[in-house]
Design a binder for these strands. Structure first.
Length: 260
DNA sequence: ATGCCTCGCACAGCGAGA
């Protein structure tokens, strides 16, 4: 089964691109981030017309996450939002079960600029995710944590076109990378790097400054697999060409294929 | 050092993104 993480940067602005992606790739499960729409504005009818059912956690204007499954059975919702902060108003986490696999769609806070409350929020959110991820591992099930983690895992060129250009960015701060590593080291597998240990793999290219044209990207969309899911890992990759199409998101769909 | 594009909001630039 193909499981995709795709930050669409506005699901309504990306309606044609998303429908095209579903028709061409026919993924089994799609985790969407940055819906940028309220719950009542989610294009559920369009999703259904494309042959998918969805659960979603929207928010007017920004954030918003969803999980799509192919076929007539909707994902079974497990939770919306992370535990640990009832005052957190951002729609950044949704978790569901599809065909026995637990899947989370994650939109981790960006955290820029560093040194502000936004960066503190990023790290606090990361810590809440770490605690919840540990709970998920204890279930000893197939679990996929898929999303826009807003972290460049290493400053090496394999993860970023220029460590120097990104050195002051929240995505590459040592604290951000450490928080990501702490979750990984619980026992998760970074599927992209498991399949592609060497060489550049980018999932995001900024709209500005010709970043796409000069391949100035970085890797921030990640699919983390629990040990039982990792045992089923057949392949992983980035559907990069969708980044180059008309009206593209600034992220490319990033995926894993698990043996049934 | 800042803006570069894009989206949503709401109808004029602006916040947010990364």
């Amino acid at each position: 089964m193909k499981i995709v993480s795709y930050n669409v940067n506005g699901i309504r602005a990306r309606a044609d691109r998303l429908a095209e992606y579903l028709a061409e790739q026919q993924p089994d499960i799609v985790c969407l981030q940055e819906l940028k729409c309220a719950d009542e504005a989610f294009p559920a009818a369009d999703i259904e017309a494309a042959g998918y059912r969805a659960v979603w956690h929207g928010q007017k204007g920004f954030n918003g996450v969803a999980i799509l499954s192919r076929g007539d059975t909707a994902p079974t919702l497990r939770r919306m939002g992370l535990p640990g902060d009832p005052d957190d108003s951002h729609s950044r986490y949704i978790e569901a079960e599809v065909d026995g696999t637990i899947v989370a769609s994650i939109y981790l806070p960006n955290g820029n600029p560093v040194g502000t409350e936004k960066f503190a929020y990023k790290l606090a959110w990361f810590e809440r995710l770490r605690l919840h991820a540990a709970d998920l591992l204890r279930e000893e099930r197939a679990v996929v944590l898929a999303g826009d983690w807003n972290v460049i895992p290493t400053p090496e060129p394999d993860d970023v076109f220029s460590a120097r250009a990104m050195a002051k960015d929240a995505l590459m701060q040592p604290e951000s990378r450490e928080a990501f590593r702490r979750i990984l080291h619980q026992g998760w597998t970074d599927a992209i790097r498991a399949r592609h240990p060497d060489g550049p793999v980018y999932t995001f290219w900024d709209y500005t400054a010709g970043c796409w044209q000069r391949d100035a990207g970085f890797r921030i969309d990640h699919l983390l697999l629990s040990p039982i899911a990792a045992d089923r890992l057949a392949d992983a990759g980035v559907d990069k060409d969708y980044r180059g199409r008309e009206k593209a998101s600034d992220h490319a769909p990033t995926w894993v294929r698990l043996e049934a």
